[in-house]
């Protein structure tokens, strides 16, 4: 007797489960979350807080707002940021002032923790949303964030 009731139970629960899967089988496009990457590259919109890689925005005069304070370098847990800096004499005040020579960012070591962007007092660095970072040679992952010939925007103080 229990043999037959077990068969009955088995078929019943099987059909219950299949009613769930069958519903999705018939409405397969509804509620689908699969994205047709990379075909949807043109329309793919990442969330604006998404942490892809650290970049330093420059304005049209090739100026950024990094003062070379090294707070991001200190905040970084794994040494992904190196600041090479120098002191120059400010023409107006005659005082010595710190400027950056190179803001070096090792994307290959970065854990995308966000501490550097959070630590920067002048919002000189921010997150870019691109995530396609594969390269043929890992040296290409080391980037100099300040563009050649750029300088710090006037009025940004340490």
């Amino acid at each position: 007797m229990s043999y037959f009731s077990e068969i009955y139970d088995g078929i019943k629960t099987l059909l219950t489960g299949m009613s769930v899967t069958g519903k999705y089988f018939l409405n397969s496009r509804k509620g689908a979350i699969t994205q047709q990457y990379p075909d949807n590259r043109d329309t793919l919109q990442m969330f604006d807080r998404f942490r892809g890689e650290v970049v330093m925005p420059h304005d049209e005069n090739n100026e950024h707002s990094c003062t070379g304070c090294q707070k991001c370098e200190l905040a970084c847990p794994n040494g992904s940021i190196e600041i090479i800096w120098d002191r120059v004499v400010d023409e107006e005040t005659g005082k010595k002032k710190k400027i950056i020579d190179q803001h070096i960012y090792h994307l290959g070591m970065c854990t995308q923790c966000g501490l550097c962007v959070d630590a920067c007092p002048s919002d000189a660095i921010k997150w870019a949303q691109n995530f396609e970072n594969s390269v043929y040679d890992r040296t290409q992952l080391t980037r100099v964030l300040n563009k050649p010939g750029s300088k710090v925007r006037a009025g940004v103080e340490e």
């Binding site: 969330f47 807080r49 923790c113 966000g114 501490l115 997150w127």
Partner: peptide
């Protein structure tokens, strides 16, 4: 998606800091 929008990452969020949250919720 909720995490990505508010915290900036899907798995390794690192959204808490000692003293609060890194930024306000989205």
């Amino acid at each position: 998606d909720i995490f990505e929008e508010t915290c900036g990452a899907r798995l390794t969020m690192n959204y808490n800091i000692p003293g609060g949250l890194m930024h306000d919720i989205h």
